[in-house]
C-alpha cells in the first residue's frame, strides 16, 4: 500500500516535470537578459576582469560567495565534529 502511494506520487511528479519541460521556452532564447548584459558590459570598464563569471562571483554577487565559503567552513566543522576521536574507540561498547 505504502509502495503504491509512493509510485503514484512519483508518477504524478514525473508527469508534471515533463509537462513543464515541454512547455518551457525554446532552448537558447532567453527572455530576461538585462542584468546579464549589464554584467557583461560593466565587467571590463569597472572591474578590469577578463573572466566575467569570476567578476560576478567575487564582485557583483559577492555575498553569495561569502555564504558559500561559510557553508563549506561549517560543513568541515560538522565533519570534524561527527568523526572526532571518541573515548570509546572501536565500536564494541557503543
Amino acid at each position: 500500500m505504502k509502495k503504491a502511494i509512493a509510485i503514484l506520487a512519483f508518477l504524478i511528479i514525473f508527469a508534471f516535470l515533463i509537462l513543464g519541460a515541454v512547455e518551457m521556452r525554446p532552448f537558447g532564447e532567453p527572455e530576461q537578459e538585462d542584468m546579464d548584459d549589464y554584467f557583461l558590459g560593466d565587467s571590463q570598464p569597472h572591474n578590469q576582469v577578463n573572466n566575467v563569471v569570476t567578476a560576478v562571483l567575487f564582485d557583483y554577487r559577492g555575498l553569495d560567495t561569502l555564504g558559500e565559503a561559510t557553508i563549506l567552513f561549517s560543513a568541515v566543522v560538522g565533519v570534524l565534529t561527527v568523526l572526532r576521536e571518541t573515548q570509546k574507540k572501536g565500536g564494541e561498547d557503543v
Binding site: 572591474n47 576582469v49 569570476t54 564582485d59 565533519v79 568523526l83
Partner: peptide
C-alpha cells in the same frame, strides 16, 4: 589586473584546498 578579485581568488583557493583536504583526511 583584476584588483580584489584576484586576491579573493587566492583567499578562497587557500580555504577550499584546506577544507577539502581536511574532509578527505577525516573520512
Amino acid at each position: 589586473t583584476g584588483g580584489t578579485v584576484t586576491l579573493m581568488n587566492l583567499a578562497v583557493g587557500i580555504e577550499v584546498s584546506a577544507a577539502l583536504s581536511l574532509i578527505l583526511w577525516m573520512m
